[in-house]
Simulated assay, not measured.
Amino acid sequence: MPAASTPKPAARRQDSTAVGIAAAAFVVASVTALLYPLSEADPGVSSGVLYVLGVLLIATYWGLWLGLATSFASALALLFFHTQPTGSFHVTDGSDIVAILVLLLTACVGSVIADRARMRANEAEQRLLLEAELRAAEAERIRLEEVRQSRVRVVEATYSERRRLVRDLHDGAQQRLVHTILTLKLAQRPGQDEQARAELLADAISHAQAATNELRELAHGILPAILLRGGLEAGVDAVASRMPIPVRLEIVGRRFPPIVEATAYFVVAEALTNAAKHAQATRAWVNADVRDGRLRVEVGDDGVGGALAGGPGLLGMDDRVKAVDGELRIDSPPGGPTAIVATLPIPPADDA
């Protein structure tokens, strides 16, 4: 079925005008019904001030023209039902006609004042809404700019890391592997005695083992295999086991998208490393759970505190988190304790 169309502004204005006319008629009829039984107790028209209150109400909500129409309708109702003889427009007392004219003038002036107040209130409301929209737009612009800068820094850091890896591979593992190949070729040459061949083989094995260790260290710095195989819980457990201080873990036992797991893992690894090396902490803790479709990771320690959000380590952590549209909060007063909380969005398709 086709979706219901949104009412157009003109239709909404017509509805509002119709409601206003009905409200005005109701106000005039109600005040008349209230005053008519009192005509004996109040032979004059002084009680007609109630009509003015009704006019103010109508003008405040529906504007000047409906307020003026209600003013004239109120004056006619007062003239017809509250003068002598009852039930006619004949006025026997000249003071009544003066009072009715004063009442009409007062109601009209009140309509103008109420309409101006209504317009000022609407303008103030629109101004507040516009200011709120501008503040929200500015906040969003600042957030997007921070995300853009964070992603630029992440890209630059990734490029620098790639160059470092290429350099380390060339100067380290690659050279050792080349040396291993040359040594093995020397060992294959005819005429080598057994002792020389054994020494060459031992040297080749030594360099091959060293190259393996260097490659393992490089791979660990990129992304640990245990994180890829076992998820965040296994990866954080491996990081905590290498810390020189006890670490209490409460990690949600489920898998997340790779980018979410990797970001959370590096946040935990960096925070625990800072706690062990710089914070003089004696214990730390890591909590990770899902709240409102977002992964919340908290890392805390009982160290000396004073961690600066603009420091290289925490800035890089913040860049990683913002690059995936997450948020990072650092609470580290002097004297401690320190709490670092990263909130990472989980794509809906993967948040099963």
Score class of each variant (00 low, 15 high):
G44V: 00
H170V: 08
S5G: 02
A279I: 03
L227V: 07
L184S: 07
A307L: 11
Q280M: 12
D331V: 14
G20M: 05
G316W: 13
N122A: 14
E133Q: 15
Q175C: 01
R291C: 03
M243A: 13
I222C: 06
V252T: 13
R151A: 06
P337S: 02
A187I: 09
G335L: 04
R329Q: 05
D318L: 06
R294E: 12
S74P: 01
V252C: 08
T180H: 14
E140Y: 06
E194N: 02
W65F: 08
A323E: 11
D193Q: 04
A342L: 09
I142L: 11
G300W: 02
I346L: 05
Q126P: 00
D319K: 02
R248P: 01
H220A: 15
A342V: 04
P347L: 12
V27Q: 12
R176C: 03
S74I: 01
A73L: 10
A307S: 13
L223D: 01
F26G: 11
D93K: 11
P244I: 11
A136F: 10
P258M: 14
L66A: 12
W285D: 10
V55H: 08
E327F: 02
S206C: 07
R120V: 00
V91C: 04
V286M: 08
A275M: 08
H170F: 03
D318G: 14
A24H: 06
Q84G: 03
F89G: 09
A204P: 12
A10P: 00
S150F: 11
S206W: 00
I330A: 04
V152H: 07
G221H: 15
D193K: 00
Q188S: 08
A240Q: 06
L232C: 14
G54E: 04
D289Q: 12
G253K: 15
L134N: 09
H82P: 02
L223Y: 11
P190N: 13
P9M: 03
A271L: 00
D325W: 06
A173Y: 02
Y61A: 13
G293N: 10
T212V: 05
V154S: 08
L130Y: 14
V147R: 13
V28P: 02
D318V: 00
P9N: 07
L35I: 06
A41I: 13
G311H: 06
V290R: 12
A117R: 06
P347D: 14
P244G: 04
I205P: 00
A210T: 11
R296H: 07
L103M: 15
L34H: 11
A269D: 14
R320C: 01
